[in-house]
Amino acid sequence: MTISVFCILLFAALLHASWNAIVKAGSDKLYSAIAVSGFSALIALILLPFSPQPSLASVPFLAASCVLQVIYTVLVAKTYQVSDMSQTYPLMRGTAPLLVALISVLILGDTLSLVAWSGIVVICLSILGMAFNGRHQARRGIWLALLNSCFIAAYTLVDGSGVRLAGSTLGYTLWTFFMNGFCLLLWAMLARHQEISRYLVANWKKGLPGGIGTMGSYGLALWAMTQAPLAVVAALRETSILFGAVIAFALLKENVAGLRIVAACGIAAGAILLRLS
C-alpha cells in the first residue's frame, strides 16, 4: 500500500469518528442518524449533475448496498436503545473486517500477505478488547451488534465490488448517499413527520457537518477500494475507533483508561503492519 492511500484512509477514519461523535451527542440517536443521512443525500443531489455517472454494471450493487445500509442504520439505532454504544460500536466495527477479509480472499479472489493478515487480526482483536472492557453487556445488545457486523461486512463487499465496476468513484459515492439518505428520510417523514421535521430544523448545524463527514469518509474508503484489497481498506477504516477514543476523551469527557489505552496502541500497531504489507 502506498503512503498516499494509507494517509487518505487514516483521514477517512478520522472523518468517520467525527460524524459518529455527532450522532452520539444527539438527543435522539435514530433522528440524529437520519439527519446526517438526510443532509448527505441533499449534498449528493446537488453534486450529482456535475459528476461523471457510474456505469450500468454497478447499478445492481448500488441497489443492494442501499437495502443493506438502510437495515444497518435501523439496527444501529435499535442496538443503542438496549446497550451501551461505547462497547457495542467497537464490537460491530471490530468483527466486520475479519468477515470482509475471509470472504474477499475465499470468494472474491483478493490476496493478502502474512503481514497484512497480522495487521487485520491485531486491529480486530484490539477493537474487540475495547468492546468487552467495562460493564457487563446485555445479551440482546451483543447479538444485535454481531448481527450488524454482518451487514457492515456485506455492504462493504458489495460496494467494494460495485465501485470497481462503476468507472467513477465520485458518481458511485454520490448515488450511494443519495439513495440511502432518501430512503431513510422518506420513511421518517411518512412515519414520524412532525418529530423528524422539528429535529431537522433544530439540529441542522450538526446534521450538515455530519453529512459532509460521512460522505467524505466513505467516499475516500470507496476510492481506496479501487487501489488496495478490500480487507486492508476495511481494517484500516476501523482505526476510526482510535480517533473516536481520542474524541471521547478530549471533547466528550469520557473516561479512557486501562485496557482501552492498550487497545488503542494495538490499533495503531495494526495500522503500521498494514502500511508495511
Rank of each mutant, 00 (worst) to 15 (best):
S168A: 01
E195H: 12
V121R: 11
L91W: 07
F11R: 07
A101R: 01
V115P: 02
A25G: 12
L98M: 12
I8E: 11
T226D: 10
E195V: 13
S126T: 01
T239E: 11
V76P: 07
A245V: 13
L125M: 11
A235L: 10
V70A: 05
L75W: 08
A13H: 01
F178W: 10
G171F: 03
I3T: 15
S40H: 02
S51Y: 05
A257Q: 15
V256G: 10
Q69N: 14
R192M: 08
S51H: 03
I71Q: 06
T239Y: 05
L10E: 13
S149N: 10
A263M: 00
C124Q: 04
M130I: 15
R275W: 13
A234S: 14
V262L: 11
A13L: 06
W204M: 03
V5F: 04
C7R: 12
W187T: 14
A188F: 06
G244L: 06
A166W: 03
L200K: 06
L56Q: 15
A17W: 06
V74S: 14
L75T: 12
I272M: 11
I267R: 07
L190G: 03
G160H: 03
A44T: 03
A63C: 15
S65P: 08
G38M: 05
L47F: 06
S104H: 10
W175A: 02
R140Y: 09
L47R: 02
M215I: 10
K78S: 14
A33M: 10
S126E: 08
A234G: 08
A153G: 05
C124E: 12
K24P: 00
A33H: 08
L220P: 07
D84Q: 08
F39V: 04
L56S: 15
C66Y: 02
L276W: 05
P54G: 03
L184K: 00
K29D: 13
S104M: 05
V232L: 13
N180D: 13
T79V: 12
A44P: 03
I22C: 01
I127C: 03
H193Y: 10
T88E: 02
M85N: 09
T2P: 15
L98Y: 09
K253M: 03
G211M: 00
P54V: 02
T95L: 12
S277V: 01
G219L: 11
D84Y: 07
T111V: 14
G119N: 08
Q69F: 11
V59C: 08
W19T: 02
V74N: 12
I3G: 12
V163P: 00
T173N: 09
T226M: 08
